[in-house]
């Protein structure tokens, strides 16, 4: 007898009176993606399409990926024995930001994550607040755009749960923008936001998230390359457009010339 694999559903305390994205967000996360984004352009096209052949290829890659992922499958999850003995730390490994260093010395007791923008109740979460939210633990491969990959176990609160703690998103919400203490930012679209493996991780391999891996909180976006998995999160805002951030491409990496959609 074979068991049918089903997507883990998240209990989000549905509020059926509102027929809005928020209602969809909070009631059908497992079907999420296409229902939520429906015929939305955001699911298939980056916030800003580049010119020329490269731009056409960007759209082809993203829309092909999203069509194939329309059932919102999980990225491969591995066994504890697959966990890398010495997971690489890459890029920023210890932000020199003074405020960050002060928070670090205090064990992040005073650290806060503001959740603002197009949410019902903007709020500021402490690390303990986030740890009290329903959590998800996953053993996944970090796929760096350089070519290396390493497996680790991550525990964190699904991004959807964090938004839900702020009462859910209001109408017009299209992207969730994450800022980091070292000045990075990335916008991610609702298709990724509703995915169960999209978590804000505070534990790695059973311990508190190490500094080199983004303490106290980092994004795990398992179906996209490493550079979208921001470390050292500082704040979250829900927006209706990426135009006002950086060069308007939707993230710091795409401002520099990388693909905004990093599924390849």
């Amino acid at each position: 007898m074979s068991k049918t694999k089903t997507m883990p559903t998240l209990d989000l305390g549905a509020r059926p009176r509102r027929v809005s994205r928020r209602a969809l967000l909070s009631s059908v996360p497992a079907l999420g993606g296409l229902l939520l984004t429906g015929c939305s352009r955001d699911t298939f096209v980056p916030p800003m399409v580049r010119g020329g052949l490269i731009g056409i290829a960007d759209v082809l890659t993203m829309s092909t990926n999203r069509l194939l992922l329309s059932g919102q499958p999980l990225a491969r999850e591995y066994q504890p024995s697959d966990i890398a003995p010495d997971f690489p730390t890459w890029g920023q490994t210890n932000p020199r930001d003074e405020k960050y260093q002060r928070l670090l010395r205090a064990g992040f007791a005073d650290w806060r994550l503001p959740v603002s923008g197009l949410v019902e109740r903007p709020l500021s979460l402490s690390l303990d607040d986030i740890k009290r939210l329903p959590s998800r633990t996953q053993i996944t491969a970090h796929v760096c755009e350089q070519g290396w990959s390493a497996i680790a176990q991550w525990t964190g609160a699904p991004l959807l749960q964090v938004l839900n703690a702020a009462g859910g998103v209001t109408s017009g919400a299209r992207y969730v923008v994450l800022d980091t203490v070292d000045g990075w930012y990335e916008g991610i679209d609702m298709f990724e936001v509703v995915h169960p493996q999209t978590i804000l991780a505070y534990r790695m391999n059973g311990d508190d998230l190490p500094i080199g891996n983004g303490a106290p909180l980092r994004l795990r976006l398992e179906r996209q390359c490493g550079y979208k998995n921001l470390k050292f999160l500082k704040s979250i805002q829900v927006v209706d457009s990426m135009a006002d951030f950086g060069k308007g491409t939707g993230g710091i990496n795409s401002d520099w010339g990388f693909h905004w959609y990093a599924g390849v």
Binding site: N65, L68, L69, P73, L74, A75, R76, A141, V143, G147, E222, R223, Q224, C225, A262, G263, V264
Partner: peptide, 11 residues
Amino acid sequence: AQSPGFTAAMP
């Protein structure tokens, strides 16, 4: 097979 997106869709 190196793409995190494609491998999620086709493990």
